[in-house]
Design a binder for these strands. Sequence first.
DNA 1: CACTCTCCCTAACAGTGTTAGTCGATCCGT
DNA 2: ACGGATCGACTAACACTGTTAGGGAGAGTG
Lengths: 239, 239
Amino acid sequence: MAVESKSDDAPSQPGLTRQALVQAALRVLEREGVNGLSMRKVAAELGVKAASLYWHVRNKEELLDLLTDELMADAEAPPREGGWREQLREYCVRYRRHLLGKRDAAKVVAGRLVPGPHLLRLMEDQLGRLREAGFSDADAAMVNYALGAFVQGFVLQEQGPLSASEAMGAGRREVATAAGEQLRRLPQETFPHLVALADALTGPSMEDRFSFALERLLDGLSTLLEQGSDVRKEGTPDE
Amino acid sequence: MAVESKSDDAPSQPGLTRQALVQAALRVLEREGVNGLSMRKVAAELGVKAASLYWHVRNKEELLDLLTDELMADAEAPPREGGWREQLREYCVRYRRHLLGKRDAAKVVAGRLVPGPHLLRLMEDQLGRLREAGFSDADAAMVNYALGAFVQGFVLQEQGPLSASEAMGAGRREVATAAGEQLRRLPQETFPHLVALADALTGPSMEDRFSFALERLLDGLSTLLEQGSDVRKEGTPDE
DNA sequence: CACTCTCCCTAACAGTGTTAGTCGATCCGT
DNA sequence: ACGGATCGACTAACACTGTTAGGGAGAGTG
């Protein structure tokens, strides 16, 4: 269950566990967003003063590391049905949906590459499927990393701060149409393509953009697999 | 030169221009990193107090927006030689190198999707090449977004905080080998693939990972282009 | 001269991460 | 049962942060 990295076990009831601390942080994150996530508020959530947290956690950074893994706690691997491509697609789609479901999750997770136990569980599962699909060991590892970085990067844009327009009362849709308007207004002589493609650039939803990029990436993986199974052997034909 | 979005021109010598402000921010960013980038320090860089900045800029967010575009000021498009694939690859490679060259650039840029003039210039150029290569308008727009998100997301991982280990004296290489050690120590029964692929997972450099993912993505684009030139003969399919 | 407008200032507010030092409670060995 | 250690919380403080309110020097214009 809980991973005790040190040799200290819980003697009595410390009142505050690292686990409780992380879950309090999770609640604050959900309620106030990543900018409102402060040590003092996490402490208050536990009925405790800020300085007490530093007994259980070295830094805010360390708390964020723990929080990062906790965000992956209820992520689920897709069912093992269909070919490798369907499974990988479902993996990415679910990962994206999962991150989108938690407030500011992408901003917390972004760039925090040391994997905690929950992420390790998912990696283990995905690596297994990649190997079964016929990817070489080196390729499987690469693909695993690439997919993770891809989804995280994508969701980060999606969940991002909307720039300064966020302060104004504009929602996402309004920003998109306003951006389209702005593009269309550009001087045609110097920006012919931007003007011509204004709709194509600002029209598609984030969902569309994600699907598009994902399918292209999966296409790339499938050509890799075909080349690989040429060289490799006869290989198991994919289902 | 300077783009005045409002109709206010500089009457006398304001001493502080938005431009000067942004470049001061750029210097502070380079010197102190994104965590050390504060309004007070930017002001001090200009020999001025913090409150004065709010005359020229609404928010720190707005300053970061301007800074984001300024970070793209000296980015260069690749030469127009070779096929579309070489050019796109070179685009991504240069973009990555450019971001890596500026301190914490990825963290500043991350999720700030409203493009400034410098980025627009690059987009215009890339869209032109995509259309010349034979991509449909819709596809060109999608590819443009996908490549940007891909590179940004990737560099963000790369430039990221290294997690809590950063506080310790460990460099990137040490972290990688330590992570490999940690993976190899996992219980084989529950994490067989992670143990088996420990080297494959932690060995490759960021450069390798980037190249790998990039080539897969380009493969995917090339299959799209092949299919597209088949189907695309006659009219526009939808909308 | 008076008036407005530009632009920077001081002062302050509320909040941040983090450290030092303290102090009660609980456990342990004697 | 007592002395001491250790756990686990506390108060106080430091050095910051973004941001606003209001003041006031200086220039341009009537």
